[in-house]
Design a protein around this nucleic acid. Structure first.
Lengths: 85, 85, 85, 85
DNA sequence: TGGTTCGAAACACGCC
DNA sequence: GGCGTGTTTCGAACCA
């Protein structure tokens, strides 16, 4: 292999290793998050509800309303009482 | 291989093939369902809302209320207005 | 005019019911599959191993191409660099 | 007493905020990874191929055992039948 | 920006 | 009834 090819291969290897290292960190954090929910569950919280709340907080304000409006519209169209929700 | 072993192997093969055939059918239906939603989307419906509605209709009545109650409780605990939903 | 008017209620209902009907069929098949494994188990087969076998058989469709692709992938990653040579 | 009293509000808030903070960190890392690929792309590498390579490298940890298991799986599926021989 | 593809998260099932 | 596995679903990332 020529030097040029070697250099390219090395560069590729380094980039891949950086990506892999970061991916590992990401996995670590994902595990930490998982632990938080395990702890919450152990303390008697409903993790499903917690995740819903986090999703709501994350979504831009208007988006939640918008989704609810569509849902209510569809429920009405089907003759279902959304009051039951 | 003895006859007994052959019989067992044949039986195993038949069972596996039955399971595989059924799995194929299941995939076919899954595709059909997917097509329904594609069609719905093409007609301008919000498929996410549709799926939510289907989930609600499937869930036993009390369950939906129960989940909403927990969610509202948590939102209140966080000082969030669930009226915004 | 209410929100109801905003959606073609009948169309929506029909689509949802089609999806629900198909979902029922899918569940039915899933049950059939489950029955096959129950039967296998009753006859003394190891169902966990059977499922593994089925997974392997499924994977090995297309396995050959996949193997051939690995080297090409590496070459591809370096490919544009080769232009530099 | 309101529903609010039913949950330990502070505890809930802290858990949720911890989860959210970790989620932010995770996003940050995801962005870093994204940057690595942007950089790779800028240097002329094929990022799709790189990702494939990374996936392969990840899979091939533990690949050897897996290969060895296939025959054993078949034997296991038939295993209890052998007792009949 | 919208569609598509991909990986990760949620769900459902069977097992213990 | 909880756990682990496998499937399905969802959201994020990339491309056009």
């Amino acid at each position: 292999m020529s030097n040029v090819a070697n250099v390219a291969a090395d560069e590729l290897r380094l980039l891949i290793e950086r990506a892999e290292r970061l991916a590992d960190e990401k996995s670590g954090i994902a595990e930490d998050i998982s632990d938080v929910f395990k702890e919450a569950k152990a303390r008697g919280f409903d993790t499903k509800a917690m995740k819903t709340i986090i999703a709501i907080r994350k979504k831009e304000q208007g988006k939640v309303q918008e989704e609810m409006t569509v849902l209510e519209t569809y429920l009405s169209a089907l003759g279902m009482q959304y009051a039951m929700l």
